[in-house]
Design a protein around this nucleic acid. Structure first.
Lengths: 133, 133
DNA sequence: GCGTGATTACTCGGATACAAGATGTCCGAGTTTGAGCGG
DNA sequence: CCGCTCAAACTCGGACATCTTGTATCCGAGTAATCACGC
């Protein structure tokens, strides 16, 4: 039960791209170098973000990744869901006939965390250098 | 990023033991049979709960596991921490010199979930058959 | 009836096996930019 | 100076290799209750 490193890389990459005011594509190599990761691996991660519609990819020379049109207000939860998936963190694998009270509690707690992550936009960290709340 | 099955088993085992009014030890075999798990595996999980001080083990014939003296008010978080560990779910593996804003947000969200799990006692599910909130 | 030993029913702990997912690498294919070269 | 071609700089995607972790099994050791047996 831990967040994957991929999520960490994705968050940092997005944060960096948002910080870049220009809409020029940012190359994977540059992002990878900043974080000390293999470009090939980071590419896989960013591809997931592309498929989720959070960023766009520009191929060819001087290509790279760029933010979508109005995607400056991406939340933490958007990125996490794109990488980790949207499945529930907990599922009671017992019989499905009677609803599991434990399951309900766990889902409720999970939603508490997700609400916090949904409210927090990445751009807030860039603009104000302050964490909400 | 999912809760392990072991956590599921631990929660259900604890819930069952709390439901048992008597303080007679409950055997692993019985608990395992109820959940469709191997007794050997469940034993390993319950051992973790013993080490965490949440339950006691009684060896010998008619042995098994029993709740500690005043451990009727165990919270979800107690059990989860005993199984999954207390480490943070997210750690930014970049340079430690400058504190990471992303890390702070993630920890904050994690705490929101943990607060929910800390408040919720297992015994509530038995007594009132109602999930708080 | 009573004490002693053996059997049985348990947990405990380590060693091991297996599977799945996270992590990371490599390479071929497609795409765009830009430079070079010939007209 | 213009247009064509070719190389370079990229991403994309799949196919691997590796490593960690969760999941699960097995077996020997220890412990306590119970049973059997003999006195």
């Amino acid at each position: 039960m831990r967040f994957s490193k991929a999520t960490n890389y994705a968050l940092h990459s997005m944060l960096f791209m948002i910080g870049e005011a220009s809409n020029k594509p940012v190359g994977v190599q540059y992002l990878a170098e900043k974080q000390g990761v293999s470009p090939a691996y980071l590419s896989k991660i960013l591809t997931k973000l592309v498929k989720a519609g959070l960023i766009d990819s520009v191929s060819g020379a001087n290509g790279g990744y760029t933010l979508g049109a109005q995607n400056k207000d991406v939340s933490f939860l958007d990125i996490i869901h794109a990488i980790e998936g949207t499945a529930s963190l907990f599922n009671c694998c017992l019989d499905g006939k009677t609803e599991c009270l434990i399951q309900k509690v766990m889902v409720s707690a999970e939603q508490a965390m997700e609400e916090r992550l949904m409210v927090q936009k990445l751009v807030d960290l860039v603009d104000q250098k302050a964490v909400g709340k």
